[in-house]
Write a protein that binds this DNA or RNA. Structure first.
Lengths: 233, 233
DNA sequence: CGATTAATTGACAAAACTCAATACGAGTGG
DNA sequence: CCACTCGTATTGAGTTTTGTCAATTAATCG
């Protein structure tokens, strides 16, 4: 179930997807969302767009969270990215989406039709540059994720994931995970059991705290850093 | 297999990196390469650009092959992509390269300065669109590779790799691999031993032939397809 | 409070990795 | 032409990590 409203919404978020600090210029992408964005609400697990669907809008997360998923016929699932409030997604396809997007919890989005974006971008240099930068930041995110999936062990994946989430939510040492263990597993290319075991292992080592399964406290940041250190460059 | 010999090089190739069929319009990226591209030759294993280097040119492969690599301090290496004759690379960075690029064998390239590309793209819609499409095809390639690294076993990775190489070189059932086993291993997130063992296993199953280590014959295509089938969608 | 879903834990199996030895292949010099 | 060498690839044996299957505990929601 999905509700559409047309009122412009003030931009309260921040672009965290790839550490890009987007300024708020007239004619920018952020401004376009605020001026012409359509409001949408998606229920938990609702599909925002399907794999293979025509890409006809781009989105900004207002509240909640989104996962980009690809499902194989025998049930394996990969989550290519998570999008949190402030993040923009859906640029990442030329014609058809190669991944589906789903709301993780109840999620509010702003959507702008591609026809509108495209028309504006022809005129407006700022907007074109914003779109370009976003596409590249998605590419960088994907490449970073490749490294994680290809060359890291379970501990390193979990550590990297927790640090990433903490950064993106500015959680000051504590992270409130919007997604379940299975989502994390499918994002990290692990099984749910390995995620669980690795989490408890980090907890028993005193590196993190787990007041509840969705709440993580980064207690020993240096230790976490040192887990990732070999991957730095 | 394609070879580029003449100096002002007509674009006879096709963009294979992600299956994008680029048209040949005046003012397109291909045309820009042909008109203003600088010729460069890199010896085997020579660095084309370093990780972290300022991104100031984009490239098209004429002959040879290129690998995009990221090295970690403890020696793990990931190859993010291979580029073959006709492929364009180096767009994939906004300011700094997050991966290094190296020639695999002796490799000839065309290079165009970013300042030139950027200036032209402001004026020229075709070129801007070409750049955009290339960036998105790199993104699709990276996402496809994520799926491979995150959810496939060794056999599936090798099978996918061989099929990809065959498609990209139009080898009609036979592939001449430009890269060594270690490169393949680092592209697939495996060890060299696992690559080797899996290759010989496929050979003993009669699915592929291995007249030499660098030459592969896809003998039983249906069998190869069926190895990948579960990943189709 | 009971029902249902999500998360953890345990015991075992399988896949891939590591370390070590051997084989192959191209190039070199006797 | 053969032997030698060096880099690359293959093969083998044993270990480690992660996955699988099953059971248990915790959390959530009417």
């Amino acid at each position: 179930m999905m509700h559409w409203r047309t009122e412009p919404v003030p931009f309260r978020g921040h672009v965290v997807a790839a550490g890009l600090a987007a300024g708020l210029e007239r004619g920018s992408l952020a401004e376009l969302f605020n001026r012409t964005g359509m409001h949408a609400i998606h229920a938990r697990d609702a599909e925002i767009f399907a794999e293979g669907a025509r890409a006809d809008a781009i989105y900004r997360v207002l509240t909640g969270a989104v996962r980009l998923t690809k499902l194989t016929s025998d049930g394996r699932r990969l989550i290519g990215a998570f999008y949190l409030p402030g993040d923009i997604f859906g640029i990442e396809a030329d014609d058809r989406h190669d991944f589906a997007a789903e709301a993780i919890g109840e999620t509010r989005l702003l959507a702008v039709r591609r026809s509108v974006v495209g028309a504006d971008a022809e005129e407006n240099t700022d907007l074109a540059r914003d779109l370009w930068n976003h596409a590249l930041s998605h590419l960088r995110q994907a490449r970073g994720h490749m490294l994680l999936l290809g060359r890291k062990n379970a501990q390193e994946r979990i550590a990297a994931f927790l640090m990433e989430m903490e950064e993106r939510t500015e959680g000051a040492g504590r992270v409130e995970l919007p997604m379940c263990r299975q989502d994390i597993a499918d994002y990290l290319g692990l099984t749910i059991e390995t995620v669980s075991r690795t989490m408890t292992h980090l907890e028993r080592s005193g590196i993190i705290g787990l007041p509840s399964s969705r709440r993580v406290v980064l207690q020993d940041r240096p230790a976490l850093d040192s887990l990732l250190e070999p991957l730095a460059a």
